[in-house]
Structures are given as structure tokens and as C-alpha cells.
Design a protein around this nucleic acid. Structure first.
Lengths: 218, 218
DNA sequence: GACACAGCTGGACCGCCGGTCCAACCTAGG
DNA sequence: CCTAGGTTGGACCGGCGGTCCAGCTGTGTC
């Protein structure tokens, strides 16, 4: 009956999600409190709960927004293998910038953001000529790899936010590995998460291609 | 000076971790409360904190115990590729039985359980003849895939604990996919998580092998 | 056997959390 | 002007992880 919003600057789900992302980005997951959110929006809790069901709902909406933006950006490449690399790298970059998304994606396989990733990967695999069970197997492998790497990278970023702490962490790991394989310890020292992540995508793509060729007959 | 434990049936870190695993297995992650733990052990909170630093410490110790047992069991295969499959399947089975481990592994890359997985995978890859950067890339890919699949499977199990709920969930997913690819929707219906997980491992192993051959020179 | 000691134990207590509830408010329609 | 209903803000609730401390309990010493 009435117009849906009384004032353009009034509280809305969109504004709440926006503020949520801002808090998460600037102060981290642990700082996202409904109290902090109400303070940030200069409002009360009842108002929040008129637009949002629960805190989890809010987190899902926030990560859905970020992932949705990424998937929309990287959708337009002709070569499907290249598109898959771009898709994976886009997700990685997004989680590098917003570590909380990585944790959130690992939390619930039914949330919209994860479904978006599934369908994007699935359609690129179809374009790659993979179908049937091979496609669902490959899709599962790639999605799980991307989400796993995302969660680990995000957790690492949470644990070692600055470069010094990260160096310490890598050093400790290198020491642990040194006895077993000095070469690996050396590589760990000038280690690039992004390059390693892409190398993993390439291993996956090579595997899909290798398994497709020998099984020629339907 | 004195003997380290006064009575064999007294409170100890081991007993606490054991009780923690029992609560997590029987009642789920959300049921693990320090209050529930004290009730289970018929003790108070101060006593708990004499043996355990924080709740996170407890969770890490619990998952470390489960993973450690798994890795010790599957270590003895001659063929490294087979050993990797056994390793991955062992982790998958453990997480299928203890879903909370899956969530825990995705939370912190520095915890002992994750380091154990890294070193196990790394040593098997070395036995497979993969070295240097290829090894760290392959190890990263495999570990991230396994951890990602574990976390997703665990989250799914948390969300749909019984078979009926799981069917509903798959049905909803199938409906979503049906418009895009009816074949995939059909496959989703009689979907086997364990087989799909192993298919993913095979994709990565095939990729590692495929990328090793063309790059013959060091 | 008495004693002092040190580590262990249990429960009261704290601040904070997510979520609920309701009285006051503000705008649209009559 | 009044009424009505969606919107707002804050008081309130039970429960959480973690801290603190007074007392207990087993031990080594004499």
C-alpha cells in the first residue's frame, strides 16, 4: 500500500549489509558484533532485526555480495580454461582482500555464494567439453580446492596479518620441514601464495585433460 | 619433585580431550561448552583451565588426536600414489565420522593436525618423485583440496544430518542445476560423496603426473 | 603423628554475546 | 485532526568463554 521506504537514508537491508562489510574489512571477523553494528549505524537492535533474520544471514548476504561481484566481473573469457583460471584467481583475490569471506564460504555449502561458485565452475567445465559424471567430479574437485585454499589463506591472513608475522610463520614451517627436505624449506622462504594457488588450478586442469583423453569411448 | 600425577583417575589433559571428543561426536560442535564439559567430567572450570589454555586449544588437541590416529594407520603402503589415496580417504572417513574435525581443520593452518597432513602429503609426493617447486605446488593443491572437501562435507553433514534432509538438499540443488544441465541434475540424485572425493584425488594425481612428464629437464 | 607446603579443585563472578520484546514514534490515509 | 501500522531504539534475557580465589588433598620433613 504505502511506499516501501519512507526515507532514502533510512535503515535498509542493503545499508546494513554494506556496514557489515565495512566492519569486517576494517576490523576483522571478531569485531563484527550486533552491538558494533548498531553503533556504526546509530540505531538499535530491534531495527536491525526488522531487516535481517540472524547474524548468519547477514554474513551470508555479505559474502554473497562480494562473491557475486567477482563472478560477474570474470565471466567473459572465450577460452574456458582461461575462464576457469580467471574465476579461481578472482575468488582468491577477493578473499585476499576480505579474509572473512574465506571463513564464511567454508561454513555452509548451501549458501548463495557457494552455489554461485558451483554453477560458474560447472558452466565453464561444460564449455571445456567435460560432461556427465566427469563434470560433477571435476566440478567438485575444483570447487573444493578453491574453497579449501581460500579458507586456509584466510585463516593464515587472520593469524599473521602483517608481513613480519607471516615471515615468522613461514620460518617455523621451514624449520619443521628442513630435516625432511631442505629443498622444500628453501622454496618456502620466497613463497608466493597467489602463484601457488594458480599452480594448483593448473594441476587440476591438467588432470581433467589427462583423464579425458584415455577414456575416449563413452 | 613430587610425582607428576597424583591419582590415575584424576583430571588430566588427556581425560579432558577424551571427554571433549565424546561430546563433539555425540552432540555436535554447538554442544561443546565449557559448562557441558565440566558437567560431563563432574568438575569445575578452574580445574579445566589448569590443564587446558583455551577452548581453541582444546579443539586443536581433539582434532590433532583424531588426525594423528588416521595418519598413523594409513602410512604403510608401498605405491606412493596409492598411499596418497589412502591418506586422503582416511582423512575423509575420519571427518565423515567426526564432522567437527572438518570445521576445525579449516580454522587454523598452523595447528598440529594440519601440519601433520602437510608433512604426510609432502613425504608421499617425494616418494612419487616430485621435488622442488613442483612438490610444494602439488602438496599445496592436494592439501587444500582435501581440507576444502573436508570442510564442505562437514558443513553439509552439520546442515543435513539425516538422510531425508540430505535428499531434500540434493533435490534443491538438482532443481537449481536442472535448467542449466539436466545431466548433472540426474547425477546428483544418486551421488556418492566418498566416490566423488576420491575422483577428485585422482584428478590431482593425474595432473601432477601429466605436468611432470613434459617438463623433463630440471 | 603433626606440620607446612604446593599444586589441584570447584564454584562464584565478570563482561560480552546473539536474540527477544515492547513502548514510543513517525508517516500515510481518512 | 485522528487513527493505524510499519519502524525504531533500548531494556532485558539466558548463556557463553574466561578469571579469580578460598579451600581441599596428597606429600615430604621432622
Amino acid at each position: 500500500m504505502v511506499c516501501m521506504t519512507r526515507r532514502t537514508d533510512a535503515l535498509s537491508r542493503e545499508r546494513i549489509v554494506e556496514a557489515t562489510i565495512e566492519i569486517l574489512d576494517t576490523a576483522g571477523e571478531s569485531a563484527l558484533t550486533l552491538r558494533a553494528l548498531t553503533a556504526h549505524l546509530s540505531t538499535g537492535r530491534g531495527a536491525l532485526y526488522h531487516h535481517v533474520a540472524t547474524k548468519d544471514d547477514l554474513l551470508a548476504a555479505a559474502s554473497d555480495g562480494v562473491i557475486g561481484r567477482v563472478l560477474a566481473e570474470v565471466g567473459g573469457h572465450e577460452d574456458p580454461a582461461y575462464a576457469i583460471r580467471a574465476l579461481a584467481l578472482g575468488i582468491f583475490t577477493a578473499i585476499d582482500g576480505h579474509p572473512w569471506v574465506g571463513s564464511q564460504l567454508a561454513r555452509d555449502p548451501g549458501q548463495p555464494a557457494v552455489l554461485q561458485i558451483w554453477t560458474s565452475v560447472g558452466s565453464q567445465l561444460t564449455r571445456l567439453g567435460v560432461t556427465g559424471r566427469a563434470r560433477s567430479d571435476a566440478g567438485s574437485a575444483l570447487v573444493n580446492y578453491v574453497l579449501g585454499a581460500a579458507a586456509q589463506h584466510a585463516a593464515g591472513a587472520r593469524r599473521a596479518p602483517d608481513q613480519a608475522a607471516r615471515q615468522e610463520y613461514l620460518q617455523a614451517l621451514a624449520t619443521k620441514w628442513a630435516g625432511e627436505d631442505p629443498d622444500a624449506a628453501e622454496l618456502l622462504r620466497d613463497h608466493d601464495d597467489r602463484a601457488q594457488f594458480l599452480a594448483g588450478v593448473d594441476i587440476f586442469l591438467a588432470g581433467v585433460s589427462a583423464l579425458r583423453k584415455p577414456a575416449g569411448s563413452g
